[in-house]
Amino acid sequence: MYLKYTYVHKIRIVVSGLQALLKHKDIWRAEDIAEIAAYQRRTNLPTGFTALDRLLYGNGWPRDGLVEILPEVHGCGELQLLIPGLCCLMGEETRWIAWVNPPFVPYAPALNARDIDVNRVFLVHPKNHREALWATEKILESGSCSAILVWLDEQQLEEKQLRRIQTRAKEGRAWITIFRPMHAQVKSSPAELRLSLRLAETHTKDQVNLSILKRKGGWPVPNLSLQLHEYQALSANTRIAAQWQQWRQQHSLAGVKH
């Protein structure tokens, strides 16, 4: 009788410990995904790319969480991927967008032309990795920014720092995107979404290859071809330019020298 009592008691302890663990905000159960996704569907942030939306947890970018983007090179569409989401966020909220340690200048006229209100954009130029982390944390803590784009020094970046950023992002209700080089994909990360961007091989030049390395509620997805808006428009322009040149040549005018 006594033995039986202790046994039950022990089980109770184990169960209560498990309950506590399950209540932890970083832990979720696969069976809850559908439920949470249904809840989040109302509040998600569309990426602007239907093919990508369909694959993401809650059908879009997380409104409070860490996303990692690993572009192959600069200029492979890493910003364009975010622009529709940022536009949507700016329209919905009055909070700001912060760029921490950007490698180049985010060009204000170009942002304006893409419907991003530059009045609500600010850049932070930290002098070192420590300052960059401090600034990122303060921005998240303040809750005054809805989106934050961060470039960090890969060599000094540690997993625990990312973990801290991830928790702060939840608290500050901010969508934070960290840009890391391609080789960081072998490292583990607490980010809830990791994407790598590669330019498409040869002939279809207006596309990028996007791979989902990690996502909530699903397996990684390799090589998703994505047609970026800008590339589309550009290819259309190129077509018109080609026609125009053809027309000039037909009318024996001097062609435009490249």
Partner: peptide
């Protein structure tokens, strides 16, 4: 400016 005629990154 046409949306696609200026780059997002400027040096």
């Amino acid at each position: 400016i046409a949306a696609n005629s200026r780059p997002l990154w400027l040096f």
